[in-house]
């Protein structure tokens, strides 16, 4: 094999088993995720809510410490206790609560910064839907000295949408904590 052919075969190839994703699509999806984060950090919750599909499932299972042979139970199963298990209506209750001006856990409001990285896009079985995994780090500073840092991974289904570019049709949030090391989870991820 010529040097050039070797280079062609080894460069610019997606990691093992992954589909090649169009650069524009990758960028559009990343920009969507950054926009979402911006809305949350700007406390424009209603705007963020509008990016969620009507049939969204927004789910944050619990994480437990397990024996090595029971590691399949490390992440809480569907139908078990979860930190969030939401549909559009129940997320709407949460947004309305923030809008009351009397949600004391977030009034005065916290300062948050949602960092989104490691965006991995794959085709899904459904047309015009993309499976997107991303890592996040959410920093919260509250009142004077309170600080919370939440790290984890999100597995999203993003659906192509004429108005917004995409909507979030499903989100599984894997928070890297066993005991939640904060007094509440009053932010969106």
């Amino acid at each position: 094999m010529s040097a050039m052919a070797t280079a062609r075969a080894t460069q610019g190839r997606p990691p093992m088993g992954r589909a090649r994703i169009d650069t524009d699509l990758q960028q559009d999806i990343e920009q969507f995720l950054y926009f979402e984060a911006e809305l949350l950090d700007d406390r424009r919750y209603r705007g963020w809510y509008n990016l969620l599909a009507g049939d969204i499932r927004y789910w944050m299972p619990t994480r437990s410490n397990r024996l090595s042979r029971e590691m399949d139970k490390e992440v809480g199963a569907p139908g078990e206790v979860a930190h969030f298990d939401e549909d559009k209506a129940s997320l709407g209750v949460r947004v309305r609560q923030l809008e009351t001006g009397m949600h004391w856990a977030e009034d005065p409001p916290s300062r948050t910064r949602h960092l989104v990285t490691n965006v991995r896009v794959s085709p899904s079985d459904v047309e015009a839907e993309w499976a997107v995994r991303s890592n996040f780090l959410c920093y919260r500073n509250r009142m004077d000295t309170e600080v919370d840092i939440w790290a984890g991974e999100r597995t999203d289904t993003l659906r192509v949408n004429v108005e917004h570019g995409f909507t979030v049709a499903a989100r599984r949030i894997l928070l890297d904590q066993n005991v939640i090391l904060s007094k509440n989870l009053s932010v969106f991820f």
Binding site: M60, V81, R94, K183, L185, S186
Partner: peptide
């Protein structure tokens, strides 16, 4: 199932009710 969702959404660290208890106890 309805009870499971109700408990998660109201009384848990992310629950709409319990979030505000954390604020009081913490301060």
């Amino acid at each position: 199932e309805a009870l499971r969702l109700q408990a998660i959404r109201l009384f848990s660290p992310g629950g709409t009710i319990e979030q505000d208890d954390g604020e009081n106890w913490g301060h």
